[in-house]
């Protein structure tokens, strides 16, 4: 069994790492005829430290921000070789390398129409360098560069709307998903790879170290993010919303209280209200509330 797997055990991810769960699901869903291009980040470091590699598919890492561009070159080479039709190309990275430093390369890849699936593992901060704030860090979250203090409630801005930015490129497929919903991940990866052109999938992946929750709570925390409306699960094909994760909304406190990064908010009803407003906005925007 282990020898057949495309993402082998023995890597050095932390216990409860949501990204490790997600990355395994992605490559196992994509299958062996896949070339993976990885940005620098936790996944790259814990899966491919010389002389070992967890990857049983062709895998390349170049730099922090250029996976989308390197993947563009891989795809172009496969077209030249006449091998693109039966080879998937997946570019992947964390939220920092996707939404911040690698946004330009990603935008170029999406705009040029390459037949590539880009997967963003969103753990909402620069975890590999020690939990610094990224463009996808949520409002009021405490990180090492958006700390809490007498004059600070943590991160001052809401998450950059990456799914909408990707969608605005007019790409044929865009979806969000969560490491708590594994079958949904598998379905979306397979669906994305069945469509020609640039695809973007953003996956919410808890980081016990950075979010400061118990490592056995990873899936529960990820599930709460979805159930509160803070991480909307949506799927767009050709710009049309074709599926959404419907919920019976839970109050955001349930999500916030299990994580150290939001601990400072719990005694502050005003701050919790602001986060509840974000969830309510998401629920309304995408019509996430289950009928009846």
């Amino acid at each position: 069994m282990e020898t057949d797997t495309l993402f082998k055990p023995g890597h050095t991810a932390c216990a409860g790492c949501g990204q490790a769960i997600g990355a395994k699901l992605v490559i196992e869903s994509a299958g062996p005829n896949t070339i993976v291009v990885n940005n620098t980040g936790c996944l790259e470091v814990f899966s491919a430290k010389y002389p070992e590699s967890a990857w049983n598919v062709p895998w390349i890492h170049s730099l922090f921000e250029n996976a989308a561009a390197v993947a563009s070159g891989v795809e172009a080479a496969l077209i030249y070789l006449g091998k693109k039709a039966n080879t998937n190309v997946i570019a992947q990275g964390g939220d920092g390398s996707t939404a911040d430093i690698g946004l330009q390369a990603l935008s170029g890849m999406l705009e040029r129409g390459h037949d590539i699936l880009y997967v963003c593992y969103d753990n909402e901060a620069y975890m590999n360098t020690g939990v610094q704030r990224s463009g996808l860090t949520p409002f009021s979250s405490a990180t090492t560069t958006s700390p809490v203090g007498a004059k600070s409630f943590g991160n001052i801005r809401p998450k950059k709307p990456m799914p909408e930015i990707a969608l605005a490129h007019g790409i044929p497929y865009m979806a969000t998903c969560s490491s708590a919903f594994m079958q949904d991940i598998q379905r979306k990866i397979k669906k994305a790879l069945s469509i020609k052109g640039p695809k973007y999938i953003q996956m919410h992946v808890p980081c016990p170290l950075g979010w400061r929750h118990e490592s056995e709570l990873t899936l529960q925390v990820a599930k709460l993010a979805v159930e509160t409306g803070l991480y909307p699960i949506v799927e767009y094909e050709n710009g049309v919303l074709i599926s959404k994760g419907e919920i019976t909304p839970k109050p955001v406190e349930e999500y916030l209280k299990v994580q150290g990064r939001f601990k400072h908010l719990l005694t502050n009803p005003e701050a919790i209200k602001q986060i509840q407003d974000i969830a309510d906005y998401n629920i309304q925007k995408y019509g996430l509330k289950k009928e009846g």
């Binding site: 070339i35 291009v37 390349i60 170049s62 730099l63 921000e65 250029n66 989308a68 561009a69 390197v70 993947a71 563009s72 070159g73 891989v74 795809e75 172009a76 080479a77 496969l78 077209i79 030249y80 070789l81 330009q104 390369a105 935008s107 170029g108 705009e111 040029r112």
Partner: peptide, 27 residues
């Protein structure tokens, strides 16, 4: 007969040829 890729920066120009050569194609 060549795949001609108009990229969005020199950083990506170099990254594209890196990816192509890594896939076994002269670039």
């Amino acid at each position: 007969d060549s795949q001609f890729i108009n990229v969005e920066s020199e950083h990506s120009a170099a990254s594209v040829v890196l990816g192509a050569v890594a896939t076994g194609v002269r670039a």
